[in-house]
Computed example of a mutant assay.
Amino acid sequence: MTTRVNKHERIDAAHAGQRLDAVLAELWPDFSRSRITAWIREGKLRVDGGAVKPKLRVSGGERVELDAELEAHSGVQPQAIELDVLVDDPAFLVVNKPAGLVVHPGSGNPDGTLVNALLHFDPGLAPLPRAGLVHRLDKDTSGCLLIARTTTSHRALVAAMKRREIKRRYQALVWGEIIAGGTVDEPLGRHPVDRRRQVVRRDGRRAVTHYRVGRRLKGATLLDVELETGRTHQIRVHMAHVRHPIIGDPVYGRRGAPAGLSEAQRTAWQRFGRQALHAARLGFEHPDTGEPVEAVAPMPADMRELIEILAADEGD
C-alpha cells in the first residue's frame, strides 16, 4: 500500500552552505533523512526543475519539488508496547510519551520505539509518513505527542503545525530562581562542529520561546513555556542561552547542583537522570470539524518528586 507525496519548498537563505538532504530533513520532519536521500537519488525530488545529488550545498532561494510514493512501513514491525492514549479520535491520536522512549526507529534504536507501538495499536497508520507523527519529542522529554490517522488529517495537521496554529505548552525545571517571565527571541542553527547540537547563531532560523514562572523553588524555577516556533532542541538551547539551563540536560545543561541546597535536595538534583522537560498541553483545531481540541498530559512522577524536594523549605 502506498501514499502519494507531493511537496513544494523554497529554501531559506539561512540554510546556505548546508547539504540539501540535511536541510530537507529539518524542514520536513515527517520524513527521515534517509528517505529524503533515497528520493533525491531516485530523481523524485528536483531542485529548480533539475535532478541533483543529496550532497548538494544549497545557496538559498532554490525551489524544491517532490513527487513520490511512500510505501507502508514494511521495515518497521508492530510491537505490543503500552501506550498512554490521551485522545482517541478517528482522525488523530494524542499520546502521553514517557521519558526514555525513542519516537522513531533509527541508528542504535531499530525497534522498541513509539512508532512500533503505534503500528501495533493501529495498523492503519502504516501507509502514513512516520506512521502519522505530526511532530517529535526528544527521547528524554515526556508528554503530549500528536499523531494523524488518515492522509487527510495528516496533511491538515502538518500544515497547521507549519502555520504555528498548534499550541504546544511545556513545563520545564530550570537552574536559578527566576523572578519574572520573559521571551527568548534568538535564531537557532546547527553547531558548526558538533552537528548533533543546536546553537544560537545570527544566520540561524528564527526561534521564539515564551516563558512564565510557575513555581519558585530552592535553586530552581518551574516554568510554563510556550513555543511560538518549533526548532530542534529549542527550549533546551534557549534556556541555556539565558543562563537558566534545564535541570538534568546532558547536552546543554550544567553539572552538579547549585550551592545552598540541603543534602537531600542536592542528592535528588544530582540523581535526576534526564532533562526535566514535559510537554504538558497541546491545543489545536480538529482537522475534520474545526472544533477546538486540548490534550493535557499529567506531569510525570520523577519531576513531581524533584519539585516537592526542592520546595521543602520554600519561603512562600
Results as ranks from 00 to 15, higher is better:
Ile307Thr: 12
Leu173Lys: 09
Leu45Val: 10
Gln18Ala: 14
Arg35Tyr: 04
Asp12Thr: 01
Arg63Asp: 11
Glu69His: 06
Glu42Cys: 01
His233Glu: 07
His104Gly: 06
Gly260Pro: 15
Val199Phe: 03
Pro250Ser: 06
Gly100Ser: 01
Asn6Val: 15
Val94Gln: 08
Arg201Ala: 12
Trp269Ala: 09
Ala295His: 07
Leu56Val: 02
Gly204Leu: 07
Arg304Trp: 00
Pro192Trp: 13
Thr209Trp: 09
Ile246Ala: 10
Ser32Cys: 03
Ser142Val: 04
Arg155Tyr: 05
Arg243Gln: 14
Leu173Cys: 08
Pro98Cys: 02
Arg304Gly: 03
Gly60Trp: 01
Gly283Lys: 10
Arg201Cys: 14
Trp269Ser: 07
Arg202Ile: 12
Lys7Gly: 06
Gly75Tyr: 00
Gly143Trp: 04
Ala240Arg: 11
Leu101Arg: 05
Glu165Asn: 12
Thr113Val: 08
Ala220Leu: 06
Glu62Met: 05
Arg163Asp: 15
Val193Ala: 14
Asp21Lys: 04
Arg206Gly: 08
Thr113Pro: 02
Leu86Ile: 15
Asp288Tyr: 13
Lys218Pro: 00
Gly17Pro: 02
His286Cys: 15
Ser153His: 10
Met299Gly: 07
Leu125Gln: 05
His244Glu: 02
Ile246Arg: 00
Arg274Lys: 11
Trp28Pro: 10
Val184Asp: 03
Val242Lys: 02
Pro250Glu: 06
Leu137Pro: 02
Trp175Leu: 09
Tyr211His: 12
Asn109Arg: 05
Ala240Val: 04
His286Tyr: 14
Phe92Leu: 11
Arg236His: 05
Asp84Ile: 02
Glu226Gly: 04
Ser107Val: 12
Lys97Tyr: 12
Ala13Asn: 03
Ala126Gly: 03
Leu277Tyr: 08
Gln18Lys: 14
Leu188Thr: 00
Glu177Met: 13
Asp84Arg: 10
Val47Ala: 06
Glu9Lys: 14
Val115Met: 07
Leu128Pro: 13
Glu308Trp: 06
Arg195Val: 10
